[in-house]
Design a binder for these strands. Structure first.
Lengths: 304, 304
DNA sequence: ATGAAAGCGCTAACAC
DNA sequence: GTGTTAGCGCTTTCAT
């Protein structure tokens, strides 16, 4: 009997309907991935790994690109698909909506962002410590006119990297020379760089808030301003995307522990899916400085 | 009455269940995106635009990363979610499965690939013509030892680019100097480059099958072999990803009409969703050479 | 062992 | 207008 049915099913090309199954079992096996943009190479890689691993765990990925400012609207749609969890990559959601998710019992994990007032969990690298290390590295490299090019000022990554940087500079007793905003965009970074070099007193080093902007900064410095890196200006950034090791740039940068961050995200998500009541978790992973050739090296074996 | 219900719904935080709706209406409003890899920057951008535009049309995106060799397995899963269409980005599916999709009436569009024997539709740029233009450009630039670094040899993009290149070379009466395979990977391209320069007779120009490999090729040529680009070797590639215009590379390349390809994909998909019986469509969009500084320019105003 | 029935949340069709 | 009902395809339960 069993076999008869199985045989007939195969012949008719029967396929179980995942939607129907989801509906009555209450488990959609769907995870929503909310992504703000993919032009910074850090994110495509995260997206790829996150999807692959989630698939391996039997989950399927619903992808949404957020339109700036209407992330909440998109989350509304997501919830209608009965997703079992939400990962926000380089994006945040309003605290009202976060509460809404908490109410429904849908876990939310912010990847590479955090909002302390929100019930959403988060996974980040230690951006504060990374910024601090960079300050020490640059000061110890003999630089005294160290500028900062900020990313999006409302992002926690930028806030933390800058806070750590300022702290590290203070610890070394060197004031921050200048500051400009690149908003994590290629063009914004180019403009910020031009602004920094407009005056008569020019920076001798720049901490750029992420790699993506740093490439643009380096292009302007070498191609427009005809300065040498690192002889005239040292550049250090943050992320360690694949392009950073390209020979055309050889960027000294703080590496985000991408894989560990992804694993932590999945672990939190899966744990929370099985929890009756979701409890918030925040993971901060260590990052480390990858020294290449875009910045002068510390001269003395400085204490740290 | 209507208002009473609406009010109660709002208070209780009611949200329509998209799964239930999908089930009885038979329209899931789900499109599956099947992607092979995201490290070549061409694809993240395609993914981002495709998702955004699909969202705007009221569709939602189910993302799947294909594990090499088991694309069919993944498509099985996809079908269970009752998707209304499938877009394969840089991936193909077996013709048996393609027929299966055709039987079920689920439209499949291959993006940047095609399989002529398959019922699946496809959208590509004119890779043959692009390859041909490159051959002409390099010969007219005075090069006589022009090598080719292939991508994945089983991909239609590589086949077409190479075929066009060979044709263009033949038209100019110059034999192809050498050939190596980079398989569309960074490391493969580096190795291929080293192989090409191992002999005593070295190429004076290379057509690299895509930009992603070209960056690796340029790194090896400049950093390992200590040759100058384009003085010693000219490099031309294909795609025009954002990095190609970075000042560290200034890559001369054939631009894929990404946006037009995306629009065509969506148009085909939406049209086919509304067709009772899906009829195959294949679109080939024109591409154009973007001249930067990685290759010597044609000396004479050569006819073409 | 096999069969029958209820119900997940919605929409469409048909009543009142 | 307002209400009721059947059915999408599955799983779970209960009866045979």
């Amino acid at each position: 009997m069993r076999e008869k049915v199985l045989k007939a099913a195969a012949e008719l090309g029967y396929r179980p309907n995942a939607l129907a199954r989801a509906m009555n079992s209450g488990k959609s096996r769907l995870i929503a991935l909310l992504v703000a943009y993919l032009d910074n190479q850090f994110y495509p890689i995260v997206l790829e790994q996150l999807s692959r691993k989630l698939q391996r765990h039997g989950y399927h990925v619903l992808l949404f690109m957020t339109e700036p400012g209407k992330q909440d609207e998109v989350v509304e749609q997501i919830m209608q698909y009965q997703v079992e969890g939400i990962v926000m990559v380089s994006a945040t959601l309003s605290s009202s909506l976060a509460r809404e998710c908490a109410r429904t019992g849908v876990p939310v994990v912010l990847f590479n962002r955090y909002v302390s007032s929100s019930p959403a969990s988060s996974v980040t690298s230690d951006n504060v410590e990374g910024g601090r290390q960079i300050a020490h590295f640059l000061v110890d490299g003999g630089h005294r006119r160290i500028a900062f090019i900020a990313g999006a000022e409302d992002s926690s990554t930028n806030r933390d990297r800058e806070a750590g940087f300022n702290k590290g500079m203070a610890e070394r007793g060197v004031p921050v020379f200048a500051r400009a905003v690149g908003a994590y965009t290629f063009e914004g970074a180019a403009e910020a760089t031009r602004a920094l070099f407009r005056g008569s007193e020019r920076p001798d080093a720049i901490f750029v808030a992420n790699d993506h902007m740093a490439f643009s900064v380096m292009d302007v410095i070498r191609d427009e301003l005809n300065l040498r890196i690192p002889d005239d200006v040292s550049i250090v950034a943050y992320d360690d995307v694949p392009e950073s090791s390209w020979k055309g740039y050889k960027l000294t940068t703080v590496a985000q522990p991408g894989e560990a961050m992804i694993d932590a995200t999945i672990e939190i998500l899966l744990a929370q899916i099985n929890e009756e009541v979701v409890r918030r978790r925040s993971v901060v992973l260590p990052s480390r400085l990858v020294v290449r050739a875009s910045a002068k090296l510390p001269v003395t074996s400085a204490p740290d």
